Simulated scan of single mutants.
Amino acid sequence: MAEDGKGEGKELAEGLWIIRRRRRYLWGLLLVYIPAIWVSLEVTGSDRKTAYVFAVWFVLVFAAILAAAVVRCPRCGNPFHLSGVLPMFFRSCRHCGLGLDADRNK
């Protein structure tokens, strides 16, 4: 074990930052849905073109959910939000219980 406490703390902080960033991206996509559809309807006046906007949004949300679900826990190395088949976006690792703000509580 050549690593000291600071090296492990830095790895932990970097890993949690990646998890938080992916979660923020997902939440941002979810929050932008209604304004994007509304703007699309107002600008184009077309249901068909709004359906294209929806399809693009849906693919982006699917990719964001997948990226957030499979991100690895910096402590145990297992998927942070995945325990079984369905992702559960709680604020702690489904395997070791590491909290999203564990690096901020020090």
Results as ranks from 00 to 15, higher is better:
S40K: 07
L66K: 09
W27N: 12
L98H: 06
L29H: 03
W38K: 04
K6L: 15
L100W: 07
G28T: 10
N78A: 13
A64Y: 04
R24I: 10
D47N: 10
L100C: 07
S92I: 02
V53W: 04
R24C: 03
A36C: 07
C93I: 02
F80E: 10
G28M: 09
P74Y: 01
E42W: 11
V71G: 05
R21P: 00
A63Q: 04
G5Q: 11
Y33I: 13
G99P: 00
G7L: 04
F58S: 11
L100T: 06
K106F: 06
V53R: 02
E8K: 15
L29P: 04
R23W: 10
K106D: 08
G84L: 04
L41Y: 09
L31P: 00
T50N: 03
E8R: 15
S40P: 09
H95T: 13
R72L: 14
D4S: 13
G7D: 10
W38I: 15
F62G: 10
E3L: 15
G15N: 02
R104Y: 07
G99M: 11
L82Y: 02
R21W: 04
E14T: 08
P87G: 06
L60M: 14
W57I: 05
R21A: 15
L66T: 08
I18Y: 02
I19Q: 04
D103K: 00
Y25Q: 10
D4T: 14
E14D: 14
S46M: 06
F54L: 07
S46E: 06
E8L: 14
C96M: 07
R91D: 15
F54H: 12
A51G: 15
L60I: 01
